[in-house]
Simulated scan of single mutants.
Amino acid sequence: MTSPIQDTILSLLAPLAEGKSIDPMNVAKAVQPERWQQILGHVRTNAIELAREGKVVILRHNKPVNPEKFRGVYRIRTRLEGDPTSFEDTVVEDEAGDDATEA
Rank of each mutant, 00 (worst) to 15 (best):
S21C: 08
L40E: 06
I5R: 13
A30S: 15
T85E: 15
S3C: 04
G41Y: 06
S11Y: 05
L50N: 06
T101P: 00
K63P: 00
E49D: 13
P64M: 04
D23Q: 05
E18F: 03
A17T: 10
R79F: 01
A51M: 02
G72Q: 12
G41P: 04
V57E: 07
G19T: 10
E53V: 00
P24H: 07
T78G: 01
R77C: 04
I76C: 00
K20S: 11
D98F: 08
P4I: 00
V31N: 13
P24G: 06
D83F: 04
V65Q: 09
G72L: 12
D98A: 10
L12W: 02
L13T: 07
R75A: 11
G82N: 15
I48Q: 15
R71N: 09
L80F: 04
L10G: 08
R75K: 13
F70W: 08
A28P: 05
T8D: 03
G41C: 03
V57I: 06
T45L: 14
I9S: 07
L50G: 04
I22V: 14
W36L: 06
K63Q: 14
I76N: 01
R75D: 10
L40W: 00
D7E: 15
D99Q: 12
R60L: 09
H61F: 07
R44S: 12
Q32E: 14
T101A: 11
I58N: 01
V65I: 07
V43I: 09
N62H: 08
L40Y: 02
E53T: 02
T90M: 12
K55W: 00
G41Q: 12
V92H: 07
M25W: 05
V27M: 11
G41D: 14
V27F: 09
A47T: 03
T45E: 15
E102K: 11
P24A: 09
L13Y: 09
E95I: 01
R52C: 00
D23N: 13
L10S: 11
N26C: 03
V73P: 03
W36F: 15
E102N: 12
T78A: 10
M25C: 05
D7I: 00
V31I: 14
I58F: 02
N62F: 04
D23I: 06
E93C: 03
E34S: 12
T101I: 11
E88F: 03
K20E: 14
D7L: 04
D89P: 01
T78K: 13
K55N: 04
L16W: 06
D7G: 03
Q32G: 00
D7Y: 03
A14N: 14
D89F: 09
I76V: 10
A17D: 14
K20V: 05
E68K: 13
A47I: 04
E93V: 05
S21V: 00
G82D: 14
K69I: 01
F70Q: 06
S11V: 01
